[in-house]
Structure formats: C-alpha cells, structure tokens
Nucleic acid binder design. Structure first.
Length: 503
RNA sequence: GGGCGGUUAGCUCAGCUGGUAGAGCAGUGGACUUUUAAUCCAUUGGUCGCGAGUUCGAAUCUCGCACCGCCUACCA
C-alpha cells in the first residue's frame, strides 16, 4: 500500500487539441461579455413538455402556439446551412430545438454553429412538430449559459469503460441513461421505505458513526483518531446498539437509514461504506417482522418497478406471495435431494459432508453451526425466490434472543433473495445478564485473534439493566436491495461514487 | 487474498507470424432551410498504461509494476 494518498498540491493540467480549441472559444466569449451568466430563468422541463404536448397532432400544435423556455446540455447537433437542430438534455429528459436564421437571425445562428456538444444553453421558442412528428421547439431566443471545455464521450456508444464510469460519475450520468435511472430508483426506494416506516409511527433518528466501541455486527472496523480528545475512534459497523439504547429510552419504534463502514474486501457485492436500514419496534417479535418485511418489499417493488414481480439477472422474482419460511435443515433438504432431516441431524454425517467439501469445522461446533456451514455451502445461492431462513445458532447471533423451546437457536431470520442475504432480523436479547455473558465470549474470541468478534460494551449492558422492552429489530442492506430493483449485477452500479484505488 | 482477461487519439475500437500507427464519432474548414447516431468533401490530432529486457528494429515478444474488469474467498 502506498503511503502517499494525499492529493498532489500541484494541479496537473491535462489538455489536448479539443480542450485547447474550446478554451480559445471561451476566451473569445470572455471578450464579448460574461460567458457564465446567472440570470436565465428556465420555466419548462423537457419531460413536462412531452407529457403536455406529445400527443397533440401537428396542426393542433401550430394552432395552440404554445411557447416554452428550456435549458440544458447540448447532446446532439445537426447543422444544415440556414437551419440547425440540437437535442438538449435536462434533469427530466431531452427535447429537440429547431434553430434557423428566421428565428434568431444570421449572426446568432452562426454563433450557435460554433458551440459544442456538452455546452449548456437556454432557449425559448414555440412548440411544433417536425415532418417526422418529433415534438420540438422553434427557437426565437438562444443563449449560451455555460461553456464546456471537455468533449463528451462518443454520442452513440457513450462511455463503456467501467472504470471511467465509476471514477467520473458526472460524465456517466450525462451520457448513460440507465445509470441515471438506477440512481433515481435508488432515491425513490429510500423515500418509500422512509414513508413506509414513518407512516407506521416510527421515529427516524441518527446515531453516531464515530464510535469508541464499535458494535452491532461481527465485522472489521475502520480505525481513526480524534486529535482534541486524543482518543481512538472507530467508524461504525452497525447502528444496532445505539438504536436499542433509544428503545430503552422510550422511543419504541425507531429507524435509521445511514452508512456503515466495514474494513473488508471490495467486490461486486461489497463497498467499504454501504447503506443500511435498521428498524426496531418494541412489543413485537421476529415473526411480526417477517410479515412486515413481506408487505414492505411488495410495496417497494410495486412503487419502484411497477410490479411485485421483478426481473433480476434473468430470474423472475415474485414479492407478491407470502415468502417461504424454512429452518436451515429444511432449506438444505428442500434444495438438495441427497439430504434428509435424519442425516442433517446426525453430527457425524454433517462433519463428513463438510470435510468432503473442505469446510473448516471446529470440535466445539454444535449441530446448528454445522448445519449453517452446510447451508451456506450448498443452499444459499439456490434461494432465488424470497425465502426466510429461521432459527440460527446462538453462536453466530450474539445479540438475538434465544428460542424458548430450543435455547441453542435464536428467534432470528434472514431473508434471501436471488441467492443473497437481503435482510436480517430477530427478537432482541433484552436480558442484560445473558447479553453480558455473550459479550464475554465475543471478547474472548477477539482475544484469541478473531478480529471480527465484538467488543464488550459495558454502557450497552448498563442500558439493558434499566430494562429494554421485548423488542424486534431488523436490518436491510439498501445497496443490495437497490441492485435487485435495478437489475444491477454490481454494487458499483447503485453507489454514486464507489470506492476505487487512487488514480 | 488467489486465478484469468484488459489498458492504442477526447470517446468507441482495429492493428496477423516484430518493419516505425489506422477507422468511426468528436474537433477544424467548406456545402446544405424539417434533421434524427443527419449527409457529403477536405483536414488536425498519438510518450500505443509505466519501467526494464531481447532485437538492426517492439503497440506487437519476455519480465516487473500500476490501474481496471470478471471469477473466486470473507462479509451485508
């Protein structure tokens, strides 16, 4: 790893013939006046114009004599002597401009001919339809609002270099409609989740991202340092323990949508910072959350995609039906014919199967842990349709309540969709003494070298000692959910500025 | 972390067994008053990712490095 991650203090001026050409155009514009005016008032959006007038026929539109004032970036330009067409793009979409000498005069028209793709312009004019029926604006006034110095990617193929799409997302958003669409869906989905919860009486809160004891998940944290306090701080790996402190405080329904940070690998499914929704409701249990999750995801898909059935990487995924609910051994045998409930409860059989698959097991692994390992190896990726997996072993669920009938497992579920974990929820452990005990075993594991194990958080124990009502809580990985909704294969398609190595 | 692939003009890409770099778009000049990736004519533009090596000669072969992508491993 390079130590020199600081940006260079000296600006590197990269240039080429095209940029030079545009700079000289800009300097001529400067001589003629301010080339970056700020007094243009846009009145109409491209999409609104299409919605309002798109269905009018040519003759009716002429009679209406409707005018429009638009602004946007020049995406296409076709100059034909005394007449020109330009396609401009604003936040809503694109609209075509028709520019001719009759409309704006010879001089203005020749000036326009030297403007470039990427320039931002403002235009006013009258709506009409061309002989091929395209709704356009016959321009009677045209202004250059911002000169663009860098050439846009090729107008037909766009930007296909994925590295550049992620590093220069601003260019990607200009030229890649699907990228723009993905982030619009992301925004909408988060808004819908927020509304879904607030309408049900949940309070949205923000808890610390910088924590002196990182908790709430088994993960490697980022470490940082506060100078004035001279103390080590961690970026949070989860908000869980703070949200439950709030439940102790009497906020009986809380949620947070915010970033978590985990110092682990980067892949098509992992970004070091990612967005989680966590929500907690007192006097509910994990079964209630499963029902709530079904409703939430169904409504979300309908609002974002227009249907409870979505397509993900060739699979049709149905959020309309009640999701299957299976224990790990049920899921394993349902998706793998060679396993039955008998042999899945046979310790020796499980050990042999895992050994065959070169999965590391410890002598301390109980039956539940062995089933979990076999589940992850053989079954997880086969859970395409939404499926709740329930009853996780206590060892891997240090914050979940033990099941009353079988204390070796917890009242917990994970929701799998398209072979991936999307949500994780459980009835919260509110027995402070049990929690203290589990923190102790986590702290011991950490002392043994497990750097993903949890810290002992004595303030959290103190909070539980005041009494936390019986509570159910759930976390949903927003980025992966958005991947589903946008049919994205990589998490980088749904994070605006994904983490990259320095250029 | 491991394996495989990629990096050539601003963008999209060719470039064979080594012989000194090409197209389309964009740009520039010209023609064209309803185009649709407009068209037509002319034309500018390159440290072939970086660094070594082999060779008379390297975009091309070898090695190292950097970055990206895909698969894989841990995790959400």
């Amino acid at each position: 790893m390079s130590e020199n991650n600081n940006p260079s203090p000296v600006e590197v001026i990269d240039t080429n013939q095209i940029i030079e050409e545009r700079r000289s155009k800009l300097s001529k514009l400067r001589e003629a006046g301010n080339p970056f005016p700020n007094d243009f008032e846009r009145k109409d959006l491209a999409q609104e114009i299409h919605d309002k007038y798109g269905t009018q026929d040519k003759e009716n539109l002429e009679e209406l004599d409707a005018s429009a004032i638009v602004a946007g970036r020049i995406m296409l330009k076709r100059v034909m002597g005394k007449a020109s067409f330009a396609t401009i793009q604003d936040m809503s979409g694109q609209i075509q401009l028709y520019i001719n000498n009759a409309g704006i005069g010879d001089e203005e028209h020749s000036a326009f001919k030297h403007w470039d793709l990427g320039d931002i312009i403002g235009a006013s004019g009258v709506l009409f339809k061309t002989k091929t029926g395209e709704l356009s604006i016959r321009v009677n006034s045209l202004r250059l609002l911002t000169k663009s110095l860098r050439p846009l990617p090729e107008k037909f193929h766009g930007l296909t270099d994925q590295e550049q799409r992620y590093r220069q997302r601003y260019v990607d958003l200009i030229v890649t409609p699907e990228a723009k669409r993905n982030f619009q869906i992301r925004s909408k989905a988060i808004q819908i989740l927020r509304t879904f919860l607030t309408e049900r009486g949940y309070l949205e809160v923000e808890t610390p991202m910088m924590q002196s004891i990182p908790g709430g998940a088994t993960a490697k944290p980022f470490v940082t340092h506060h100078n004035a306090l001279d103390m080590q701080l961690y970026l949070r790996v989860a908000p869980e323990l703070y949200l439950k402190r709030l439940v102790v405080g009497g906020f009986e329904k809380v949620f947070e949508i915010n970033r978590n940070f985990r110092n682990e690998g980067i892949s098509t499914r992992h970004n070091p910072e990612f967005t989680m929704l966590e929500f907690y409701e007192a006097f509910r249990d994990y079964r209630y959350l499963m029902n709530l999750t079904e409703t939430m995801l169904k409504e979300l898909a309908e609002a974002c995609v227009g249907s409870a059935q979505i397509t993900y990487q060739g699979h049709t995924i149905d959020f309309a039906q009640p999701f299957q609910r299976l224990t790990m051994s049920e899921a394993i045998s349902a998706h793998n014919g060679q396993f039955s409930s008998d042999n899945l409860n046979d310790l020796e059989f499980l050990r042999a199967e895992l050994a065959k698959r070169k999965i590391t097991c410890f002598s301390t692994d109980e039956i539940g842990m062995l089933q979990l390992k076999l589940f992850e190896e053989t079954t997880e990726e086969k859970l395409i349709q939404p499926t709740f997996i329930v009853a996780h072993p206590k060892d891997v669920s240090p914050l979940a309540r033990s099941n009353d009938k079988n204390p070796e497992v917890t009242d917990r579920f994970e929701l799998f969709v398209a072979g991936r974990e999307i949500a994780n929820g459980f009835s919260e452990l509110n027995d402070s003494e049990d929690q203290a005990q589990r923190f102790k075993s986590q702290a011991e594991a950490k002392a043994q070298g497990d750097d993903e194990a949890m810290f002992y958080d004595s303030d959290y124990i103190r909070a539980l000692e005041y009494g936390m009502p019986p509570t159910a809580g759930e976390g949903i990985g927003i980025d992966r959910l958005i991947m589903l909704l946008t049919d994205s294969a990589s998490i980088r398609e749904v994070i605006l500025f994904p983490q990259m190595r320095s250029e």
